[in-house]
Nucleic acid binder design. Structure first.
Lengths: 154, 154
DNA sequence: AGTATAGAAAGAAAAATTTTCGGTATGGAA
DNA sequence: TTCCATACCGAAAATTTTTCTTTCTATACT
């Protein structure tokens, strides 16, 4: 963070909101010309502050309106079991996010589905086949109230 | 979804993995020339399948390594109280995501912080000041096991 | 069968953007 | 002061985006 000045931070905020802004537009908003803006972007990419550029799709239009959070507790906590779970989770394309949690629950999964029925099938046929799962506690979202894709910068 | 053929789906998968792919590169991978690829992208944008393009930043480098999930239960469930909570949450820039949940818990918040200390300050000075909050149940992530930014397409 | 028509793809040219590069100004260190 | 590093500027080159016209193909109609 100390590697960033105010212009870098503003640049990151702009790009994380709209990656299609042209260098020209960015330069205008930052009060610079093309070259320094271009160089700053390349620098932020090389330093790893910018990891990638992606298109955000519409999950409703793609037929996956339901967001499910599934709290997973393992039966045993041997290193081998935990690592196996993490490896198996990577293979499940339905699992969009997986966090290793502190506390009672071991893992939190975020999953998008078209219906609860589909989710039921997923749990039954895929998730619950992973070894050593103790309890599953699923809740689903009725509505996304807020979803900012970016982090606070600055 | 019926509006999409196999080429569209592949195109969406490519763009949600890397939005910087040029039309030329996309055309090569899809076995087409520039024009139809260009037109398909514009169509997918206009139909809303592609919502926006963003830069993904590194939360560790930005000094926010901890991901916290906070389950919020309201004391009362009058429409006015719920709507007020939703409105207040929008104002809190620390809250990256907020879902209205089914079940015991009313809302699930996803929050990124630099430290648990900082989170403590946030809860004390900002979150808990919102009216009508019943209980808060926070857990935090030690490690992100998986984070795919895209949805399944097809 | 022949013909019209719509949709998608191709190709080429124009417009805009990205990328490179040489030059200038500023500030700190020797 | 002089040197050096850093950041910025401006212009040219390379590439990409965007627009437009033409070609192809499948389908439906007479």
């Amino acid at each position: 963070m100390e590697q960033l000045d105010d212009i870098d931070k503003k640049l990151l905020r702009l790009l994380q909101a709209d990656a299609k802004l042209t260098t020209k537009e960015l330069a205008a908003r930052l009060g610079l010309t093309l070259s320094p803006v271009y160089e700053r972007i390349k620098r932020l990419e090389n330093l790893g502050f910018i990891k990638q550029y992606v298109a955000i799709l519409d999950k409703e239009l793609l037929g996956q309106p339901i967001t499910i959070f599934c709290q997973v507790s393992m039966r045993y906590h041997d290193k081998a079991f935990i690592e196996n779970f993490e490896k198996e989770i990577q293979k499940l394309e339905e699992v969009q996010e997986c966090y290793h949690m502190a506390g009672q629950v071991d893992f939190l999964l975020k999953i998008n589905m078209g219906s609860l029925d589909e989710y039921h099938g997923f749990v039954r046929n895929k998730l619950s086949k992973i070894e050593n799962i103790g309890t599953l506690n699923s809740t689903f979202s009725l509505k996304v109230i807020k979803q900012s894709l970016g982090y606070r910068v600055g």
